[in-house]
Write a protein that binds this DNA or RNA. Structure first.
Lengths: 328, 328
DNA sequence: CCAGGCAATGTTTACGTAAACATGCACTGG
DNA sequence: CCAGTGCATGTTTACGTAAACATTGCCTGG
């Protein structure tokens, strides 16, 4: 900076003003400084900037392995949205969702160049973390239900699951089976609860819950079992991947979709439109979740807000060919 | 830090030594300092640290929208691997792969708190970028062929494609059709070239190349066309998503897989094992690519190496049920 | 018993920036 | 014509850390 100032024949403070687009600099001077900056290839040193300003213009994102489509899309939206606000995004991967790993990530976070944190993970691990977040660092949590203790942005899991079940009931099915996600997942839990509640509210029998682990493979295994249930004519799977495996199992067992069994998924991953048959599913607006996370955390930073609450992002039913009227 | 020093009754320099795990501090003193740090909730200020040390311990990753599985897995591996080396990862999303966007990302990068950069994108956009990377910032490129000008880490696209074609030829097919990725993609280009070369080397007729855009939907459209080609008994699709669409089209047209048509994909996304039928495909080791990117860029930083070159990560054929011997 | 050496700790300084304050100069109005 | 005003620019300082150098005190060996 000093070099630039010298070359432009001004003081370093003027260079700083130009660099930050502050007013009170003549057009002539500004042009001269800009020329000098270009000639010397000057780049502001962000470390010094951050030190001086007390902020990094960076958001930290803590997440488990980016294995689920949802997390990825959310992350992408966060990164894009943050960039629009002039913020960079630093990734804090937690390899394994164990307590130790989470603690490690949190303590690393403490000395990381980050102004605020967005957590994309099951809240119980956050709760159980023995290392606390540095005070003054705002947090927004995606994919969780802890609106009483954190600021949460999440898809309206319950609403989506309810829509899925109702869709199948409306098609004339007596009841709806559910292929749930793993027990540890709150998203899975809420989808399963909404499934049960919706059936109960409609006065239907609740079939036994079948559990998978989000993977297509687990959907396949569950599908082999469901194919043998003669009265299973409608299945709501907690995500699209498991639906994929389910479809394969049903096909192998000669159960036609949707003629014999209707299947509805959750997520609306891009591939689901090309499943065999194309999958009716509940669309999640991950981009919106990510965007709201960023907006939320930035506004909390500005206003120092400590109030919690949950923002729900609505889902949308995408009707394709895997669901149809009950044939008797 | 001064507060900690005062509370512990030592100088700030001693606190610094403890904080960085340097030798030359008594066990007693160290314990006292650690206690003071805990009591005051001290966290080293990374901005000041970076300013003083001249490095951020952070890697920047420039990538297009995280829409392809490959980029995501690579990114994940980069983040994990970087963390192991004590580095954080800052994401630099480029929303649209236009020249302007790339230029924007690069100029933002200039003032970003980043020691080195890993670029995951088509090299022609990097080449055409009018904004150059700040000097002294090392770069490693994934997913590209520009070993003469950059340090490149990539999957052995050609080898994988060759294996795919040979696998089908070995099964007795006269020739292999190819559903390629979009023209702009080097990966697609190299897979297509290797496909052509392998056929030529084997003295086979090269069928017209069919082009998709990586999406399952485009695979479906291509599949509808290929289903009408009576002599098409084997197809090599440039990725698994397109294979998914292709399978659906073939199924709709009554062409059985693998009895009538054999299909082999590329990538080995987790879902491909649950396709209908489970997809034979070429496995890419994205994790290894990411790991090598980090190792590469870190070693370049240490050694200031300017030498270029390409590191190829081998692929592996995963045989499932979508390929079979030619039936005559 | 004391010089010399070494380990533990303290003091000073610089990293690059931007806020706060200071200066200088031109122009306005009484 | 000159005090007052306001704008463009310059000077000083502090942000939190760690390297370099300085100091203290204890221990060893002759």
């Amino acid at each position: 900076m000093a070099d630039v100032a010298q070359l432009a024949g001004v003081s370093s403070q003027t260079v700083s003003r130009v660099s930050n687009g502050f007013p009170g600099v003549t057009e002539d001077t500004r042009a001269q400084v800009l020329a000098a900056m270009r000639e010397l290839g000057y780049r502001p040193n962000s470390a010094a900037r951050a030190l001086r300003r007390g902020e990094f213009r960076t958001l930290g994102v803590i997440t488990f392995s980016l294995s689920t489509m949802g997390n990825i899309r959310t992350l992408e939206a966060i990164a894009t949205s943050a960039a629009e606000h002039g913020y960079a995004v630093t990734l804090l991967p937690v390899a394994v969702p164990t307590q130790d790993e989470v603690n490690g990530a949190f303590s690393r976070l403490g000395e990381l160049a980050v102004d605020a944190v967005i957590v994309i993970m099951e809240i119980h691990l956050l709760d159980a973390a023995t290392v606390s977040l540095p005070p003054g660092v705002q947090v927004v949590v995606a994919d969780s239900d802890a609106g009483d203790r954190y600021t949460v942005v999440d898809t309206d899991q319950a609403g989506g699951a309810r829509d899925a079940v109702r869709h199948l009931l409306d098609l004339g099915h007596d009841t709806v089976w559910h292929l749930a996600g793993p027990e540890g997942s709150f998203a899975a839990q809420r989808r399963a609860n909404a499934w049960r509640d919706t059936l109960t509210a409609a006065g239907r029998v609740t079939p036994p819950l079948v559990r998978g682990d989000w993977s297509a493979e687990s959907g396949y295994r569950a599908g082999l079992r469901l194919a043998d249930e003669a009265d299973c004519t409608a299945v709501f799977t907690a995500n699209d991947q498991m639906a994929l495996g389910l479809l394969r199992a049903l096909h192998e067992r000669g159960r036609r979709v949707p003629d014999d069994v209707s299947v509805i998924g959750f997520d609306d991953i891009p591939e689901s439109a090309s499943f065999l048959p194309p999958l009716t599913t509940i669309h999640q607006d991950f981009a919106e979740v990510g965007r709201l996370c960023v907006e939320g955390v930035l506004s909390k930073m500005r206003e120092g807000g400590a109030e919690h609450g949950t923002t729900l992002v609505p889902t949308r039913l995408v009707r394709r060919e895997s669901t149809g009227a009950r044939r008797r």
